[in-house]
Computed example of a mutant assay.
Amino acid sequence: MNGRTRKLLPFMGMIVAVLTQSGSMVVIKVAMKDGMNKYVMVVYSMALSSIMLLPLAFFIHRTDRPPLTFSSLCSFFLLALFGTSGQIMTYAGIELSSATLASAMLNLIPAFTFVIALIFRMEILNWRHCSSQAKVIGTIVSMAGAFVVIFYKGPPIFKIHSSNSFNTLQFSPQLNWIMGGLLCAGDSLFSAIWYIYQVSVTKKYPAVIVIVFFQVFFIAIQSGVFALIVVRDPSAWELKLDMRLIVIFYQAIAAIGIRYLLQTWCVQRAGPLFCAMFKPVGIIFTVIMGSIFLGEVFNLGSLIGAVIIVVGFYAVQWGKASEQKSHNFDTSSNVVPLLQNKA
């Protein structure tokens, strides 16, 4: 394998990973339009994923993985709780708004991660360094862009075909859009908390596949308990050979399994910063697929807000990259970067 191919493979891997994530946003809404309950969808997808991950968790790290303790299981359960909260929020947010808005909100994760890391003194600001200035300004810009996306829809830019709108909660379209945007932003907030807590968990228990398996397994249990309380209609749990079953398999295999493996491989080959740079590409993919398969309207407010969020995203990433370069001079530093790409 020549050098050009080695450089091209991580690029192609991240494009496929981002494409599967954008496809996930679209198929979630397709399933809900077909009448599938969003909470039941989470349960079935996570349960199937945990079954698929079980052999990997058993065979990989079999000889060198640390012993499972009650403390480790509690840590995995707490990580899963953040994941469950984020999953429920993003599914509800997509139902109320659009797949494009949900994709744009994912770019808030670095900004939220930076703010939470500051609160817990895991990040230190040095106003004399341009890296700290870039992270602060990028965080403010990203959050300003989120407010634009949520509170200003603006006139439509393009729309491929008409789509019958639907809402489980019968609010006005504008209120649904705002609530959906806030829920998707909440998913990014929980993802940021997940990243920060994951740093300490992986230091204590470095067997990554085992951690992922128990997270997905616990998410299936937690979301199942939540769904049993919220979903009163027994028929919502019925599965048939239709679009709903296809969506569950897509979520379990592509959106969780393939995307996670690709992102993990790309991080190992090219680093977390390289992978994070592809995050905004998901907005483009989601806009195109949302327009083709869902007939979603792409509004001026979404365009302006997404551009602002992406500018802030890159500012935070640039600041983090500059900071990491300065830390590389200290060979004894073993700090794990917080702003990694969401798997």
Rank of each mutant, 00 (worst) to 15 (best):
L303D: 11
L241M: 13
L239K: 03
V230T: 15
T264M: 15
V307E: 04
A220P: 07
I246H: 06
E238T: 13
S223V: 12
V247R: 03
L245F: 13
T286N: 13
V310T: 14
A227T: 12
L303Q: 14
F298Q: 01
G224L: 05
F217I: 06
V310L: 04
V297P: 02
F214V: 03
C266R: 02
Q251A: 14
L239R: 02
V230E: 06
S291N: 09
L261Y: 15
M243G: 13
A306R: 07
E296T: 04
I304V: 09
P234G: 07
M289S: 06
S291K: 13
F214M: 02
Q251E: 13
I253T: 14
I248Q: 02
C266M: 13
D242G: 15
V225C: 03
L273F: 11
L262I: 07
A255S: 08
F218T: 02
A236Y: 03
I256M: 10
N299M: 09
I219A: 00
I219M: 02
L261K: 12
V225W: 15
G282Y: 06
F298W: 01
I246W: 02
A306H: 08
A270L: 08
R259G: 02
A276T: 04
F293C: 13
V247T: 13
S302I: 05
W237Q: 06
V230K: 07
L228H: 04
F226D: 00
I284K: 00
I308V: 03
A276D: 01
R232G: 14
M277L: 15
V225H: 04
L228Q: 02
G290C: 06
C266H: 07
W265V: 08
L300I: 15
F285V: 11
T264D: 05
F214Y: 08
F214W: 14
R244P: 10
N299C: 06
I309C: 11
P234Q: 08
